[in-house]
Design a protein around this nucleic acid. Structure first.
Length: 471
RNA sequence: GGCCACGUGGCGGAGUGGUUACGCAGCGGAUUGCAAAUCCGCGUACUCCGGUUCAAUUCCGGACGUGGCCUCCA
């Protein structure tokens, strides 16, 4: 196929830029994944969905085997320690930590799979990359970008001339911010921890600087460097990671390697809001993905994963989303319409998405415009006998990570409910005998089971009945 | 206080220097025994105030409002 030109908004330059891969044979993207101490909420899910969409798009454009997507799992964190001590007080710390992180990581995986996300190519764990982190820290010390003090290794921000480029802030501004606690042992208040000492009851690893654990940012520098190289194509994450996390990643990686850039394109998704405020763990105004999928806590009902996916994608990834029941309902209606319009299509493995949808996505993940294109295709597919449009719609939905039959089942599927055919036949007899009371009773009875009947006339003008079950 | 986004009809959400999407909900119609599904049609908008212009929702300036980051956070 022809390669559409990709345009992506780059936080680093605050503009949309034409995307030029470093190596078209292996396009590399890195996204900051979850810290596995607790259930992920739907706001975390948005990030996974946005970068999954980008991953799918890149695979479409450059070829399935020519994209490497790394999403890390952060399993070193003081919150994890706290959670381990709380949940498994009887276990040795390391065992307790493993229980927490493995359980949470598995939950995360199943959550985002339900949201239609493909597995990233590589999902490295921080704890498997401690040696890489230490090597990086060693390099930073040797090159004069880090110093040891008070049992900590700190990054010296003043050693980097253009520190703060990504977030658009400078050290003077940071100094002016009264919210940074001034710590006497830091040369500059903005210096941040690369390695910190662990007490005996904290997780820790031996290192040249004593038994300790890594700071928050170093893991991503280590893992992206290990799996994608010193310079790679795209680095992504939530808006709130721009500062300090990504800023500091850049500082570490560039200073350690002496490179002018860490990643060429930096992409950040915006947040979910609840009643005008950011959905966040600290505010407590969040719903976990599992909660939405499996409980009736939000809107008094459960929500299918791909309805949540569409609800996240209906809005451009750089715009905030107000998370409401109404939005989910709208997503469900729309997805059901698409699935209905695509019904009956049979897909082969190689069937690809509609070109207009791909080209909308190629413009900075313009799903909201792709959405319009899908409506157009669905409308065509609904016009009698437009098998091409139907097939195209099905293939495109699959490409976008949506199910084709998650919201309704109907004819042609194997799961026809027992006695349905008999009930329909009985009702048709009743209709033909003008016994509409009986016919309506049968229809009402089926409706109670969630089965909708739809009458139509065949070529001969005889009444026929289709059925559909809402899931 | 510093920095960054954003303000379009009941809702979601495009786009454009003049004719002004698309979807949901609403209304009317076709179809139907009645429905459902589908199709056709309709309505209300561009935060405010200046400026540029023959003409601005669209460009410029300002105001106001909302959200985010500056501390763990997608």
């Amino acid at each position: 196929m022809t390669t559409p030109q990709l345009t992506l908004y780059n936080t680093l330059t605050r503009t949309k830029e034409t995307f030029v891969p470093i190596d078209v044979g292996n396009v590399c993207m890195y996204a900051c994944g979850p810290t596995v101490y607790d259930f992920a909420h739907i706001g975390n899910g948005r990030m996974a969905i946005v970068f999954d969409l980008l991953f799918r798009l890149l695979r479409q454009v450059y070829g399935t085997d020519h994209v490497t997507y790394v999403r890390n799992i952060t399993d070193v964190d003081d919150k994890i320690n706290a959670r381990a001590a709380r949940d498994f007080p009887g276990l040795p710390l390391n065992d307790a930590i493993r229980r927490v992180t493995e359980g949470t990581a598995a939950q995360y995986q199943s959550d985002v799979t339900a949201l239609g996300c493909l597995e990233p190519t590589i999902q490295p764990r921080a704890t498997d990359n401690i040696a890489e982190m230490q090597a990086l820290i060693g390099l930073l010390i040797r090159r004069g970008h880090a110093y040891v003090t008070n049992g900590e290794v700190l990054f010296a921000v003043s050693s980097m001339s253009d520190y703060g480029k990504l977030s658009g802030r400078n050290l003077e501004d940071n100094l002016a911010g009264a919210r940074i606690a001034v710590e006497a042992h830091k040369r500059n208040p903005a210096d941040f921890v690369l390695w910190k000492q662990s007490s005996d009851d904290q997780s820790g690893w031996d290192s040249p600087w004593g038994r300790g654990r890594p700071g928050w940012h170093i893991e991503c520098s280590a893992m992206s460097g290990r799996y994608l190289g010193q310079l790679f194509d795209i680095h992504g994450g939530g808006l709130d990671l721009i500062f300090p996390h990504h800023e500091n990643e850049i500082a570490q990686s560039r200073c350690a390697h002496g490179t002018p850039a860490m990643a060429n394109v930096w992409m950040h998704n915006s947040f979910l809001q609840v009643k005008g405020q950011k959905m966040s763990k600290s505010l407590g105004n969040f719903f976990t993905i599992a909660q939405l999928l499996e409980t009736k806590d939000f809107g008094g009902r459960q929500w299918p994963g791909d309805v949540l996916r569409l609800a996240m994608l209906m809005t451009h990834y750089r715009e905030p989303i107000d998370f409401t029941v109404k939005r989910l309902e709208e997503a469900e209606t729309k997805l059901r319409d698409w699935q209905r319009a695509a019904q009956g299509a049979t897909l082969a493995d190689g069937d690809g998405p509609d070109a207009s949808v791909v080209s909308e996505l190629a413009d900075d993940l313009g799903f909201h415009r792709a959405n319009i294109a899908l409506d157009v295709i669905a409308k065509k597919a609904n016009r009698e006998g437009n098998e091409v449009a139907k097939h195209c719609l099905a293939a495109t939905l699959r490409f976008l990570g949506f199910g084709l039959d998650t919201l309704l089942v109907s004819e042609g599927e194997t799961a026809e409910p027992p006695h349905l055919a008999a009930a329909i036949a009985e009702r048709l007899d009743a209709c033909n005998a003008k016994d509409f009371a009986k016919a309506d009773a049968i229809r009402a009875q089926l409706a109670e089971q969630g089965i909708t009947l739809m009458d139509y006339k065949d070529e001969t003008g005889a009444r026929q009945t289709r059925w559909e079950i809402r899931r």
